[in-house]
Design a protein around this nucleic acid. Sequence first.
DNA 1: ATTATATTCTACTAATTTGGTAGAATTACA
DNA 2: TGTAATTCTACCAAATTAGTAGAATATAAT
Lengths: 136, 136
Amino acid sequence: MLTQKGKYAIKALIYMAEKGVLVKTQDIADSAFIPKKFLEAILLELKRHGFVGSQQGATGGYFLIRPATEINLADLHRIFEGPIALIACAAEKFYKPCTDCENVATCTLRIAMKHVRDQTFDVLEDITIQKLVKSG
Amino acid sequence: MLTQKGKYAIKALIYMAEKGVLVKTQDIADSAFIPKKFLEAILLELKRHGFVGSQQGATGGYFLIRPATEINLADLHRIFEGPIALIACAAEKFYKPCTDCENVATCTLRIAMKHVRDQTFDVLEDITIQKLVKSG
DNA sequence: ATTATATTCTACTAATTTGGTAGAATTACA
DNA sequence: TGTAATTCTACCAAATTAGTAGAATATAAT
């Protein structure tokens, strides 16, 4: 299951993609039913990862930097949820060897989980924010 | 990511399928590097769900009840990890409507997440304990 | 310049989940 | 009747989650 944070991030990005222009945190919060203070932290994280930009001051807000067609759920999953794989030894970007596995090469669980990861990744990567925009 | 509990459950079942006979908790724990006391709780849960049986007493232990070909990762995931879907409103067995979604029918996120769930389910359901057994 | 309103930053917190342990009770075989 | 296994109840520390509080800073309009 996604965390609330991850789900909010997706919803916020969808909203921003629909608007297409600079939007206030408050507007996103109201429209997507996200606690404003919590949303602030999420937007800052999205900014750090280069998905959105911000403008400070009275007429400030946030806006998409990258095109909505190039933001996919696989990338967002890695940022807010961690590895796509179900076990670390089957992960690609978050790979860590098992400590409780005597033979990594022949470990059937790892091989199976790698297959699960690859399938899941393909599905998630194909879903872009643009595809989640209404009439998109 | 799987919890340790879920991962241990799979490894314990693989071990029992490989042995094919009654095995002691201690043997599973040693072989799969699982803390024995923690494993006990996991085996009891597997028993409650009808995957394994137990015999008490000095010569007791656990054994598979269902054939290894009929225990798949989708079922185990539901027991130890919860819903297969990434959000509750896209789940099949754990369905819960969103509180923060004005139009359930047209919610693009739900539809996309349902697709992710269906793909993930198909992959997980296809992986049985038998397939994870060495030379199986 | 001042004010209003926005983002940014630091810190804190309550609730839940995770990953276990401890120890007693029970069962059954030898 | 002892031994060795499962079963049961209760507890616990650490990590994660889902936030909140409040001050600092930046910018545009008055």
